[in-house]
Amino acid sequence: MSKAIQIRGLRYRYPDGTQALNGIDFHLDAGESVALFGANGSGKTTFVMHLNGLLRGEGSIEVCSMPLSDETLEQIRSKVGVVFQDSDEQLFMPTVLEDVAFGPLNLGLSPDDALTRARTVLKRVGMAHALERAPYHLSAGEKKRVAIAGVLAMDPEILVLDEPTTFLDPPTRRDLLTLLRSLPQAKVVVTHDANLARALTTRAVFFDQGRIAGEGDVIELIQRFHWEYS
């Protein structure tokens, strides 16, 4: 099976000296969904920031068979869509429609095409009624949907979701899960939510102090690392 992501020996040290990643080997098959588990500060978010070159560490990263470099950065950012944990960081344009059109415009689409694509994905995530609303007036669940729409509008092959259910109530989590399951992209899901991981992914990777401490079947990994509090 072709690899959507192939990473070998990834290391990253923050400027303050913290060694956040210490030799990560990881792969993601095309169309596969993988959960990333691990305690706070174990390096999960630092890791996903490398998947589209927001952070650049040592080691090799290939996305859709393209090695990550300055030359391929733009292409890779259009292939890897990152949905950040805090939707407020992701929504920065004055209206929902403009925010979702932001990515397609940066990809070089004409304004008409970008707006058409933005409307299409907003309809897909169930936010077509909020085109002209200001993002900061939406509920947490609506913000998350718009943030996902902003990423889908770039037509990525891989979705990276950092704690997608944080701040969401149970019904909104359920709706979000239904939406995510309907998306065909390969997914990397950073989460503490074992239910979400079981419902959305088949494989899991467990991070511990910047290393991968275990990987395999998601249910087996949840049991092995006692990753449920009930």
Partner: peptide
């Protein structure tokens, strides 16, 4: 964080 989100979307 906002700047990173902007970079991530091209």
């Amino acid at each position: 964080g906002i700047y990173h989100a902007m970079l991530a979307r091209g």
